[in-house]
């Protein structure tokens, strides 16, 4: 369990904010966007475990997301499987794939690892496009059913919002526990020096594969959630662009922090929506903002906010002192 009271309080505040948000946005289109924010957060949390803690880059995470979505989609839409069973089987299958490719791929480091994961992502993307008989090809797979619990169907944005965020909140809690455990310390040791970690008795290659698999399984669950809330999937949503977008979320949010991925996912999903006012120039403004954030908050939003608040606090404190003196 998380022992630190401070972080428990943070988590409680955050969970209640998630719980109450629909009171503000219910019925509006923002509810729909917040469902995707939840799915993106889940993906960013998964990638953060791998990249932020273990220091292993992946440019192919959209592939795991897509595999989860497609296995779920095909199993339910074509073969009439129950969505929950499909979610579990997709997660298991993706876990196996990740475990199998993890051993050779994670022997690579730096740019080579980036290239290998990129390659994997592109291969999966091509398979989605070319196996028209199974996946429906570039024009997509439709008729995927919603989740349901004995007659209660998750068919509205509000219901899916609670479903997606329940999974996301639990995942955040579990990942926070994981990174504060012995395993989390071992992961950070790998991040700073693999040799040192090995000397300290960490089974580096196995642990890297395990965290890669866990990350892939969470992405697969996100994929299943996506498929059953959208009820339609097409390969364009799982391409290289999306892998990069995920990476941006994690980096912008703050590598190796529990709430970093959340901030990144919220910003990157909501920002384009709020920039629609700029019409054709929204992409330029979007790019500019990302450049500014990476330049002036190199540690990501989480640390940036921390710096700003501590600056304000110290300034406020000195004002108080000045006033007291004056």
């Amino acid at each position: 369990m998380v022992r630190d009271v401070n972080s428990l309080v943070k988590y409680a505040i955050f969970s209640s904010a998630v719980l109450l948000a629909p009171l503000l946005f219910s019925g509006g289109y923002l509810m729909n966007v917040l469902v995707f924010v939840g799915i993106n957060t889940l993906l960013a949390v998964a990638l953060n475990l791998l990249l932020g803690y273990a220091g292993q880059i992946s440019l192919g995470h959209a592939a795991f997301f897509g595999l989860g979505a497609y296995i779920s989609g095909v199993a339910t839409a074509t073969y009439g499987m129950n969505p929950w069973a499909a979610l579990l089987s997709a997660a298991a299958a993706v876990g196996l794939v990740a475990f199998a490719i993890g051993f050779p791929i994670l022997k690579l480091k730096g740019h080579y690892l980036a290239m290998a994961t990129l390659g994997f992502g592109i291969i999966v993307y091509i398979v989605f496009n070319e196996t028209v008989d199974i996946t429906g090809g570039p024009s997509g797979l439709s008729g995927i059913p919603n989740f349901d619990i004995s007659g209660f169907v998750f068919d509205s944005d509000l219901k899916n919002y609670y479903l997606v965020w329940a999974v996301t909140l639990v995942t955040i809690l579990l990942s926070a526990n994981l990174v504060n455990s012995r395993i989390g310390r071992a992961l950070r040791a790998i991040n700073s020096s693999e040799v040192a970690a090995r000397v300290m008795g960490v089974n580096v290659s196995l642990l890297k594969v395990q965290i890669f698999t866990l990350s892939a399984v969470i992405s697969s669950v996100a994929g299943s959630l996506y498929a059953h809330t959208m009820t339609f999937i097409s390969p364009a949503s799982f391409g290289f662009n999306f892998s990069v977008e995920l990476l941006t979320m994690v980096v912008i949010g703050g590598l190796g922090s529990v709430y970093g991925p959340l901030f990144g996912a919220v910003l990157l999903t909501l920002l384009p929506e709020s920039l629609r006012a700029f019409q054709d120039y929204d992409i330029i403004v979007y790019g500019l903002l990302l450049v500014l954030i990476t330049m002036y908050m190199p540690g990501g939003l989480v640390r940036g906010i921390h710096v700003v608040t501590s600056f304000a606090r110290s300034k406020f404190a000195s004002e108080v002192v000045k006033n007291a003196q004056g």
Partner: peptide, 13 residues
Amino acid sequence: ATKAVQAATRLIK
């Protein structure tokens, strides 16, 4: 597809 769904929801709601 994801952006299309968001935009369509926005148009309607």
